[in-house]
């Protein structure tokens, strides 16, 4: 798979996870990704952060510093209204595309 598609799917995954589970910090998001996609989308853990920062810069996420139970600070991300809307649109687009691909594969 090409990187940009992968990036696209990573974005989508992040948005999906956050839309389901509300606010999460970086490590929790990474765990969730692992849980959902197994090894398939496993990338360097660090590359999650530029992606999060980009989504934040684009106004799809907002972030704030929280204090975890153990007293450590962590940066927690959640969807903005714009992010929610964007996600809905993206989800719809992806399912159309994947449907089409599935049909093509069946036909062949």
């Amino acid at each position: 798979m090409k990187t940009d598609t992968l990036n696209g799917s990573l974005d989508l995954l992040v948005l999906k996870i956050l839309s389901r589970r509300g606010a999460l910090h970086g490590y929790a998001i990474m765990l969730a990704i692992e849980e959902v996609s197994g090894e398939m989308l496993r990338v360097e853990e660090g590359s999650l952060y530029p992606a999060l920062h980009r989504l934040e810069q684009e106004g799809l996420l907002k972030a704030k510093w929280i204090v975890k139970e153990n007293g450590r600070r962590a940066r927690s991300y959640e969807l903005t209204a714009l992010g929610r809307k964007h996600f809905a649109a993206e989800e719809a687009r992806w399912s159309t595309v994947t449907d089409a691909v599935r049909r093509v594969l069946k036909l062949a």
Binding site: G26, V43, E44, E45, G46, S47, Y49, P50, R72, A74
Partner: peptide, 29 residues
Amino acid sequence: EMASHLAEAEERGRSVDEARQAFGNALQH
């Protein structure tokens, strides 16, 4: 943020090296 990530990895039972390796090229990120 990176320190927080690595610390959590350690808490969850990974070694320091392992966590850093999994994190990848921190500078590049």
